[in-house]
Write a protein that binds this DNA or RNA. Sequence first.
DNA 1: AAAAAAG
Length: 646
Amino acid sequence: MAWTEPLAESAPRPGRPSRPFYYPPHVRRDDGYLGPGAEPAQSHPRFGTFDARPARGRGRGRSRGRGGGGGGGRFTGRRVEVPRDASPQQDFNEFDLATKLGDLDVVVEGSDDAGGEAINFAAYENVPVEASGSDVPPPASTFEEIDLGDALSLNVRRCNYAKPTPIQRHAIPIAVAGRDLMACAQTGSGKTAAFCLPMVFGVLHDGVKREKHLSSRRSVCPSGLVLSPTRELACQIYEEAKKFAYQTVVKVAVAYGGAPFGQQVRTLEKGVDILVATPGRLVDMIEREKVSLRRIKYFTLDEADRMLDMGFEPQIRKIVEWMDMPPPGARQTMLFSATFPDDIQRLASDFLSDYIFLAVGRVGSSTDLITQKVEFVDDKDKRSNLVDILRSQAKNGCLGSKQALTLVFVETKRGADDLENWLLRSGFSAIAIHGDKVQMERERALRSFRSGAIPIMVATDVASRGLDIPHVAHVINYDLPKSIDDYVHRIGRTGRAGKSGFATAFFNGKNLSLATALVQLMQEANQQVPSWLSECAKESCNGSPGLAWNRRASRFGGNDFRRRGAKSSYRSSSSSSSSYRDAHAYGSSEDCYARPPSADVYGYAAADSHLSASHGYYDAANNSSHADGPDRYGTSHGSIGASGWE
DNA sequence: AAAAAAG
């Protein structure tokens, strides 16, 4: 009963003296929020929702049990279904409540604040969960239950994590049990903590033997490794891991390109237990014998589907299979991502041993917090269209008290620079980030965007994954990505923290191949789909090879490819026992008592309308482009067909 | 065809 309960119970008592509690600087934030990227339910500004969503057709069975008797090593699975009527809107309000309260004041001078009691934790429970594999460890509902030990528990507290999020609940016990894991949950849902905590715990539990760092004259031998697809994300993970390792013997370090090699090595040589790295620099370090992977015991691939896609796969394979890392089975491997296409799952299973597949998602996932608009805009009109939007946004002010941030995605690095220049010339404060900039510039861009000093950032896909930037109110897909997965990750930069977000896409003939998947995605997220877009989807469907991108069927988890591949041999008969436990853990019992007061009581309706008001341009912009959308499409149809090859 | 990741 250490700390979660008191927090919640003391909340309604005003004037109660605050608990003295030291928060080290690295877990503080300028906006008062103390936690890192994941989500103490109680006051959590960053808790979005879950992107991982069930595949279609899952609504049928209420639950699917694990095999009766649960014999050792048998492949079993369990699922929990969410009532169909779970209203996304309601969830939004609940999250928004948490957000608002969290923003009011957090912790240092009174962790009693927060009205913990008013928060409906059931919102967290309302996610469909699938866990499949042999002998899946049961989820834990509190951190205490997981028993991470004093030091780690204290750090979790310092991060203001009151309760584990669903992905943490399920993944942490699995990880702590030493099992391999393939986990699906949206970035921002506490995924980072879900693998960092167990890694720190593992190292701590194994006992750090300092001499191991000296066991080789030349190279350091970390026991934990996390790989990330971008440098900035690596930094972010490093920062998070550091919070858990604070005041323990566990040392965390980061290695990525574009920064002085020697400096990073010198840091490593002081000892490192958990190394967060990007692939290139890591390979470099290994080849120069600065680092050895021979003692790796915990290995995590973040954004695993990206890491295993065509561009990255050889490098990852090299690191995992051709360097000195212990083979699957001799190490623990965990893969995390929001999206996990089938073919990538198949690839990934090379790296895993008797793994558990975990998908945590909510019906109508995070994207329904995001209002998605698609406008038909020819390339030549994009600039003026963008400027119109930005101008209207500037006029309509900010998002709450904070400067609303706008993230504009473009296709190419060159395009990012060009657009940045154009915006600057048009009088906007904007900055570009892409892979051709030197690392210092990249970091400076991200920093000034994060802080709100420069409220518009033009980015390539370098910024599409994982980055946790509070107050991004609007994501504009100036150029749409080729794959729907990228689209999902991009718009996922907003609509976090339970706040609503806007996403606008400029669509034209060049994006025809995306139409089908886009329409599908929007429909699932209860978005209004312009009729001209539906038409595009229908057209492009016909016998075109354009569906190469369409991985809808296998995305969003809820889908362990092993179950599809060999259903009959894997799936055991359903049994009521384990499904009952899950239903109980996630189900209605908690659901019914803790409904928060209606949104209006707290003035969310107002907050909400303020938000829409601040984006009032929307109606105007949408109407006009909507009106001429079909025409433009119609007139250029011939060329669309030609250019829309894949 | 593009971005990312080594220098």
